[in-house]
Design a protein around this nucleic acid. Structure first.
Lengths: 129, 129
DNA sequence: TAAACATATGAACATTTATTCATATGAAGA
DNA sequence: TCTTCATATGAATAAATGTTCATATGTTTA
């Protein structure tokens, strides 16, 4: 987790006492606490995963991982309403997980960067253990 | 996404027609559809990410990624109620993302496998782009 | 065995979230 | 310009989720 930098300047004072249970771990805990990523970082991280934490969105992302396509293609591929797809695409767009361009009447969506693909694959690998 | 096998035997008939918009993509869509992972697979996948899609759980997992620790250590490290931590640990345990053992009065929790760590790191990398 | 500590859990509550339905916007073609 | 197709969006609703509070369970020690 070396990528996690510590941007939290107003970090809380470390308690000088520790409950009995983990007495021997105090130093370890203190060290971890000093390097804890800040609240905002955790929020961003969970926000990212939250986007992947819905069947419809994960399907959409999987579909797009195969190549860019328009909304009606997605609607046909998955068994989801056009409206539902559109709503979810908006969320994915806001989260910058997908991008889109207009082509005539169509809106062509695609995965915005390779990380998304990688994370999905990791997830897939995990669940098939 | 080669890890995604197709376990869905009762797959829907492919529509023979396609709306005008993506006419030229028909073959691509058909090919993608044939290889779509099944519903259950998508459910499992989104379920996994859902577990990572909450600030408290992500914090807990981050803490545990630094080493095993007991509940009260986690409570101290994060700024969360003992009850909230316990509830979330139960979910994480159900999802097999963490495991635990008892040590006297304490319950020592730890990350159940390396994938979790890897996925977290990927996520971190993504949000700091 | 009684008290203290560590953790777990059920119920209640407030919030968030995803879908649906109806409709609006926007682009292309007749 | 009128119609049609493709997509977007607002409001409403139902369901899922996370926290809190109170309390239960389980373990150690006096």
């Amino acid at each position: 987790m070396s990528e996690m930098s510590n941007r939290d300047d107003e970090k809380q004072e470390l308690k000088t006492e520790h409950s009995e249970c983990g007495g021997k771990y105090i130093d370890m805990i203190k060290k971890i606490d000093d390097n804890m990523p800040c609240e905002e970082e955790f929020l961003d991280l969970s926000e990212l995963f939250k986007m992947l934490g819905d069947p419809t969105r994960v399907k959409i992302l999987y579909a797009l991982s195969q190549g860019e396509m328009c909304v009606c293609d997605i609607v046909e591929l998955l068994d989801v309403t056009q409206s539902a797809v559109s709503h979810q695409l908006r969320l994915l767009k806001q989260a910058r997980l997908v991008k889109y361009r207009r082509n005539g009447k169509s809106a062509i969506y695609s995965i915005s960067d390779d990380h998304v693909y990688t994370i999905l694959s990791m997830g897939m690998e995990h669940i098939s253990e």
